[in-house]
Design a protein around this nucleic acid. Structure first.
Lengths: 251, 251
DNA sequence: TGTACATCAGTGAACGCGCGTTCACTGATGTAC
DNA sequence: TGTACATCAGTGAACGCGCGTTCACTGATGTAC
């Protein structure tokens, strides 16, 4: 009423010479930031627009100027999470591997290893977002496939592409665990989707790597490992990833 | 007030010649059943004593005669879930393997395979319980370690014991992925805990199998696989498990 | 450059719903003599 | 076998809290002429 400049102006240090568009952008960013924060403390099921309004120093209905509904905010956070993770993993994959250059492992193998480690680091840094992406589904919320599928498959996609490159370069083991015709058919479907080519057995092995990564991270990050069972969970994870990679590569 | 016999008496067909103890037992069982049902539809975060009271046909405060609090019910469901899963897995492990007797795979390998498949079947039959055990933690709820640790480690425990037996029988590969001293130390700690002996490398490989199983099941059951990416998710899972088993066994 | 008008961001009240938990109570069941 | 008493299971009201979402409103910002 008398106070039309909300808390955020003081908080973020705005308030003079700024346009409506700036305000809007700052507000939206702040809502996302608070969303991530509430995810951390309350979980996705407890994400609440009212709570965000409170932290924003604004009346609850004001949030509706920026976000049409709670579910929509969840979707925004989900998409942001997928993209953030994928960016992180891409960066790790594309980083030069200066230090590792001495050992003889293939570039792809090293890239895949770095990708897995980057995923884990991302998850450990913000377990709640990991939970949103790969944890139990949020009851009552169903992600709109047309908006989440693309970002949601970026990481696996990169993994598959990386393996296709490795196979092209002749780095992948000739002898891989055999697969059934049904599984092979599904794998060929995936190859089509990502527009790459390699034997179905390699894709199947890729899904095994994928399962190991997801499982290894989730077990750790969701607190399944007892308080002090593992003194070096990062080393354990790397061991698990290396083990599965040794199925795929022989150097 | 005038109706001291709650719905359950009609529902379960009791009401004559039954003692208080019978009522109590039936009531407790029904509360657990409804708890599982609400888990399925509302998720753990949405588990509510009031909702259970409603379904029970009883006033909300009446539930407190049977369960001291919501968190306590969650703990009961968690412990029941762990034990139910462990019983299922034990049964699968101990089943005779008549049909498979022709192929040459070792008994342990076949047992481990059956255990993994049984886990997946259990999870697919009731995804919400799987989510409770291995999904994202329930915000605001912290499981009491002294009551959940034992049931919660039964399945991994059996897995470790099974591998120790396989190693004793000389069925495990001599060449396993190498591990670092830190990881080896943690693995020896586990061997102590479960009172078995084998090389640390074997335990490390066991955790890889564990991660793959958990990841493979969760990805499927939490809906991470798109609607129709995999026409035979069960076959895919078996493929993944077999791949990791082939790290451990050479027959 | 100034003014009229349109847009926008926030308010505050309200609707209708949910929850966990406590409490004094009553009538039915069970038990000890 | 009958009776007095204790225990138990359920009631209903209440406390104090949460939520998403809509709505008519006002004052500030921005825009077109």
């Amino acid at each position: 009423m008398q106070e039309h400049r909300s808390l955020i102006w003081q908080t973020v240090g705005m308030g003079t010479g700024k346009t409506r568009a700036d305000n809007r952008a700052a507000m939206e960013a702040e809502i996302m930031r608070l969303g991530r924060e509430h995810l951390r403390t309350q979980g996705a099921a407890g994400l609440s627009l009212r709570a965000i309004a409170r932290d924003l120093g604004v009346v609850s209905s004001a949030v509706y100027r920026y976000v049409p509904s709670r579910d929509e905010l969840l979707t925004l956070l989900l998409v942001e999470g997928y993209n953030d993770l994928a960016d992180t993993v891409d960066a790790a994959a594309d980083a030069d591997n200066d230090a590792d250059r001495t050992d003889g492992a293939s570039g792809s193998r090293k890239r895949l290893r770095r990708m897995a480690i980057a995923m884990r680091a991302w998850a450990v840094a913000d377990p709640a977002r990991w939970a949103l992406l790969y944890g139990s589904p949020v009851p009552g919320y169903s992600a709109p496939a047309e908006r989440t599928t693309l970002p949601g498959t970026r990481v696996v996609g990169r993994l598959v592409v990386e393996l296709a490159a490795a196979h092209r370069d002749g780095d992948v083991r000739a002898q891989l665990p055999p697969i059934s015709p049904e599984v092979a058919a599904d794998m060929r479907q995936i190859l089509d989707e990502f527009g790459v080519d390699m034997p179905a057995e390699v894709v199947a092995a890729a899904t095994t790597l994928w399962a190991t990564i997801i499982g290894g991270i989730s077990l750790d990050v969701f607190g399944q490992y007892g308080a002090d069972t593992f003194t070096h969970p990062d080393a354990l994870f790397t061991t698990q990833v290396d083990a599965v990679l040794s199925l795929l590569f022989d150097d």
